[in-house]
Design a protein around this nucleic acid. Structure first.
Length: 228
DNA sequence: GCACCGGACGCACTTACGTCA
DNA sequence: CCTGACGTAAGTGCGTCCGGT
């Protein structure tokens, strides 16, 4: 299992930073420098959607039976511009073998364009990708091509893997953040109850207390709470 | 200097496939 | 064997940035 870079040690300082602020860190990478986050993230709308990673359909349609197998993604209908660019760049689709392997017996013809086969990365490929991801969560084009070559994959596949990997990391971080906020909320609720009780007691003793003694102190849960 | 455009990239969301209980 | 849940590779659409004109 991969180690997620989940950092929450500074009592939630990471909170909000990772929530909903996507995009915009790409161009530094494009230019060969890996200084991501050097730029303002877009809009920063707090889209706390928290969709679980697979509430989508699960239409198991029975995979590789005897049907035609396909060369993974390049079968996609004419619309994949990046793919075309990279292919034109001389990157040959080398994952056909992997797809066929993943599909058991290989019939390596192409397709009718209506289905898509799914490549399963080998353990070695996944491990190397994971290693690179630990070093940098983004790749510049040179790194991408080199890594693709090393893995016998297409650059597009490496790119997609990194994209999905970043999404998984972010999802995990969001879950951690939510868990933290939940605990924080519970703690504040408990503290609130305690203070309500305390207030109740003080009111019941108010005949003994001087009239305006305690009126200048407002409790700020965010500065006093042990949880946050 | 400014506006516009196209290319490249990352992200969110979604789909589809392989695997497993 | 069938089925549903789950993990994940891949597709799509959109926003952003940058270089060229």
């Amino acid at each position: 299992m991969a180690q997620e870079d989940v950092h929450l040690d500074d009592a939630g300082l990471a909170l909000g930073l990772s929530l909903g602020g996507g995009g915009g860190a790409s161009d530094a990478a494009r230019q060969g420098t890996c200084s991501r986050l050097s730029r303002e993230p877009r809009a920063l709308e707090p889209s706390l959607t928290l969709s679980m990673p697979d509430e989508a359909t699960a239409t198991g349609s029975g995979g590789c039976g005897g049907g035609p197998s396909h060369s993974v993604s390049s079968l996609s209908v004419a619309g994949v511009k990046r793919e075309r660019v990279e292919e034109a760049d001389g990157e040959r689709a080398s994952s056909t073998a992997a797809a066929a392997r993943a599909c058991g017996a290989g019939a390596e013809d192409d397709d009718d364009g209506s289905t898509r086969k799914k490549l399963r990365l080998t353990k070695e490929q996944s491990a190397l990708l994971e290693d690179r991801f630990k070093e940098h969560s983004t790749l510049n084009p040179k790194q991408k091509v080199a890594l693709a070559k090393q893995l016998n994959l297409r650059p597009r596949q490496v790119e997609v893997w990194f994209q999905n990997r970043r999404a998984r990391t972010k999802l995990k971080q969001t879950e951690v953040d939510c868990e933290f906020l939940k605990r924080c909320c519970e703690s504040l609720t408990e503290e609130n109850r305690r203070l309500q009780r305390e207030l109740q007691e003080l009111r019941s003793l108010k005949f003994a207390a001087p009239p305006a003694a305690a009126s200048h102190h407002f409790f700020n849960p965010f500065t006093h709470s042990a949880a946050c």
